[in-house]
Design a protein around this nucleic acid. Sequence first.
DNA 1: TCAAAATCTGTAATCGTTTACAAATAAAAA
DNA 2: TTTTTATTTGTAAACGATTACAGATTTTGA
Lengths: 338, 338
Amino acid sequence: MKMTDVAKLANVSPATVSRVLSHPELVSKETKKKVMDVINQVNYKPNAVARQFRTKETKIILVVVPDITSAFFSEVLRGIEHVAVSSGYQVILGDTENSIEREAEYINLLFQKQADGMILLTARLDKAKLEELSQEYPLVLACEYMDGLNVPTVSIDNVSSARNATEHLIQLGHTRIAHITGPINIVLSRDRLRGYKQAMISHELDIDSAYIQEGDQTFESGYNQMLKLLALETPPSAVFVFNDDMAMGVIKACKDSQLHVPEDIAVVGFDHIKMSSIHEPNLTTVDQPKYEIGKKAMDLLLKQINGEPMAKKKIVLKDQLIIGESCGSKSLKVLGSS
Amino acid sequence: MKMTDVAKLANVSPATVSRVLSHPELVSKETKKKVMDVINQVNYKPNAVARQFRTKETKIILVVVPDITSAFFSEVLRGIEHVAVSSGYQVILGDTENSIEREAEYINLLFQKQADGMILLTARLDKAKLEELSQEYPLVLACEYMDGLNVPTVSIDNVSSARNATEHLIQLGHTRIAHITGPINIVLSRDRLRGYKQAMISHELDIDSAYIQEGDQTFESGYNQMLKLLALETPPSAVFVFNDDMAMGVIKACKDSQLHVPEDIAVVGFDHIKMSSIHEPNLTTVDQPKYEIGKKAMDLLLKQINGEPMAKKKIVLKDQLIIGESCGSKSLKVLGSS
DNA sequence: TCAAAATCTGTAATCGTTTACAAATAAAAA
DNA sequence: TTTTTATTTGTAAACGATTACAGATTTTGA
C-alpha cells in the first residue's frame, strides 16, 4: 500500500496525499477529509525511508553511550530525550560497551545519513576523526570531552570538582590521602587525578605514588585496589575514588579488613548514583547535574541542525559535593565547586 | 559525493561501483582496485538511506526497553547484541520509560520500515495490536510476555520460579510469609504473585491479604511497603519481593526498624542484579539467564527475518534460586526450578 | 579454429516520497 | 464586468542507490 494507491482511492493526485500528510495547511478541508478517510480505512503508513531519502532528514538523533549498564548515564539520557521529543526528534541509543570499534561503527551511521545528529557520551576516538566528523555533521560531546577539540561540549569541570573533593578530605584533617583513578586512557580519569594532585600540592601534602592506583570503574576493581592500598606499610586514612561503584568496592574492602568507614578510613566517591545514597554508609560524592547536561547537549545539537548560531561552544556546568556518611563529617552543608 | 561521481572518476558505470561495494565477487580485480582507489581517495561513503530505500532492508534491529535504568536489562541486551552483530545487524535501543505511548512510538518505527525487526522487552500494549504487528513484521517478545499471544517469546516461567522462591522460605520454617508485588498491570507481577500463592496453598499456609502489598519496582517503594508490613499486628517473618531493588529497600526498612536480616526477617528477591551480591547482607534471589534470553530472542528474530522455520515459538529458559545471606540458610546449594 | 560457456561491464528501470512549477478555479479589487 | 490576487490541485522530475537484462570480451573444450 503506497501513496499512489491511496491517491487513486481518494481520486486525487499523489502530491495531494503527500500534502495532506506533511503540509495540511495547503489542502482544502474537503479534500483533506476525503484523503484522511481513505488513509484510515486502508491503514496506510507512509514509508519513512522513502521520505528520508527524499527530504534528507531522518528526525532521528543517535546517542552513543560507553556503557548503558552504568547508572550514571540514564539520567543524562532523560535530559536528552526530553528536549528531543519536544522538538519532534526520536532518540536512539548505541551502546559501545567501551569498545572503540563499536564507537566508530555508530559514527558510521551518521556518515551514512541515518541520523540527523549525534551526541557522544564517550570520546575515545582520535581528535582528527572527531573534528572531521563535526565539520560535516551536527555533533555534540557530553560528559566526556577532549582537550583542544573544536566540538561543542557539555560537561563539568572535573579538575576543580576533584580538587574540591580532595580538599574536603584535607579539611577534615586527613594527610594520607590516596586516589583510585579510572582507566587512565580516559580524560575524565586524568583530569580528576590532576585535581587530586592540585589539592595535595596546594596544601603541601606529599603525593606518594603508591597512593595512586588505577581502577577500571567496576566495584571489583575498587575492592582490589583498596586491598592493595591497605597492604602498604602505612596505609592511607582517606581515599578519593574515581566513581561511586568503585567507592562501594573500596568500602567493602575496608569492612572485610575489619576497618570501619568513616572511623578508620574516609571515602569520597564520584557521580552520586542512586545506590550511593542507599548504600550503608552512604557516600560523600560529587554530583554532576546529569539531567541538565543532557538537556544542554540536545539544545546545542538542535542549534547545529537548524543552523542557528551557538552562544558558546563549550558549556561547563556546576557540580556539587554531596556530604554523606563515608567521611565522618558532621556537617551536612553542600559545597559547590567551579 | 555520490556513486555516479565516483563512477565518473574511475571511468566505470555506477553499476560497477555498486557491485564493487555490494558484490565484489562479480568484479574483476583490476576494476575493483581502480574503483576502490577512487573511493578511498575521495572518502566516499554510500548513502545508507538510499540503499535501504532501494533494497528494503535496513540491517537494523530495534530493541525496546521499558527502563534502561534497570540493571536487569543490560545483560539481556548484551546477548541480543552479540548475536546481532555477528549476523551483520546493528542494534539500536528505544527506552520507553515505562510509558505505553512511547512504546507505541517505537513500534511505529517498524511500521515505517526503519528497522528490519524488533525485540520488545516490554509488552504493555494491547494484544490485538501486537498480534497485528507480528503478522506483518519480524517481532520477538523477551522477558515480558502475554497470555495467549501468538508471538515468538523468550522468558522464564515466572510462576514456577516464584513458587520455588516461596517454597524456599517455607522449607526454612517460615509460615508468616508476605509478598511485595510489582505493578499489578504487568504480567510478571501477576505471575509471580500466582507462584507465591500456589506455594502457600500447597503447603496449607494461610494467605493473609494484608501480607500482599503492591510496589512499583523501586527501592523506595520496597522500603515503604515493608514499613507497612512491619506495622501490622503480627508482622511477617519472611518476605518474597518482586525484584532486587525493592528487596534492598525492604532490608533497609528492617534495619531502620531495629530488625536484623536474616535473624528477624528473611528476604528473597528476584533478578540477581549485580548489586544483590554486593549488598550486605547479600540477597537470596532468583536468577534469570539474562544473556541467554537475549541470545535466544535474537535467534528467533533472525529466523523470522530470513524466513526460516522456527522449531518453537515459545522458549522458556531455566531460572535458578541463588542462595545468599538474606534468608539465613546455611546451605549454599543452588536450586533449579522448572 | 570455432562454438559454447564463463566472466565482466554497461544501460536503464526502479524503489516511494516530496516539491518546483504550472494550471485551474475561486475570491477580491477595480 | 474585468483584472488581479489567492487558493487549491495536478504533472513530472528528482533523491542515490541496486539489479535485471543485454552486450562485449575472454576462456574453455572439441
